[in-house]
Every structure is written in structure tokens, then in C-alpha cells.
């Protein structure tokens, strides 16, 4: 997710029962293959979303596949960048 997020950054995610998800938002997802990942929502269907990374070398949306809404841990609402070393 570079340059938006970098290694060692802290993020705070929240999800409420009424939460909805929109393209462009960053979410924390429990992916069946990649496990806990943080990615940007690229496309929203009724019960599923697609993800994309901000970095050109990111895993592609196709490889990450459709993500069930149940697998979304939460929306990133706060980002605490690690101090540059």
C-alpha cells in the first residue's frame, strides 16, 4: 500500500453492523489466502467487494478475487505513520 501506508505504520479500523463500503476507502480484510491484509476498495457489489493496492507492484485485484463482506474486518478510520528513520 506504499506510498499511502508503510511498514510499521499503525492503523485503526472500525466496523459497525450498519457499515457500508465504498470505492476508494481503505479496509482491513481477512483474506482466505493472504490472511490479514489492508487494501483499498476498488469495486463494490451487493455482497462482495474487490480490492486493489496503491503500489504498482501490489497483488492484482484479480488475484485477490471477490471478497465477501463478512471478511471485511473494518474500515481504516485512522492512520498513524511510523516516523521516518
Amino acid at each position: 500500500m506504499s506510498p499511502t501506508l508503510a511498514s510499521r505504520d499503525f492503523v485503526l479500523s472500525l466496523r459497525f453492523p450498519w457499515s457500508n463500503f465504498n470505492p476508494g476507502e481503505i479496509v482491513l480484510v481477512q483474506h482466505p489466502e493472504y490472511h490479514l491484509i489492508v487494501k483499498r476498495v476498488s469495486f463494490v457489489d451487493e455482497h462482495q467487494i474487490q480490492l486493489q493496492g496503491d503500489n504498482t507492484a501490489s497483488v492484482s485485484s484479480e488475484l485477490m478475487g471477490w471478497i465477501d463482506l463478512d471478511n471485511i474486518v473494518g474500515k481504516i478510520i485512522w492512520h498513524f505513520p511510523a516516523p521516518s528513520s
Partner: peptide, 10 residues
Amino acid sequence: PSASAHCDIP
């Protein structure tokens, strides 16, 4: 919990 951003080419 630690989340990955997976920017390696998979």
C-alpha cells in the same frame, strides 16, 4: 494484530 499490504509480485 499485524496486517500485510502484500506489495510483492505474487
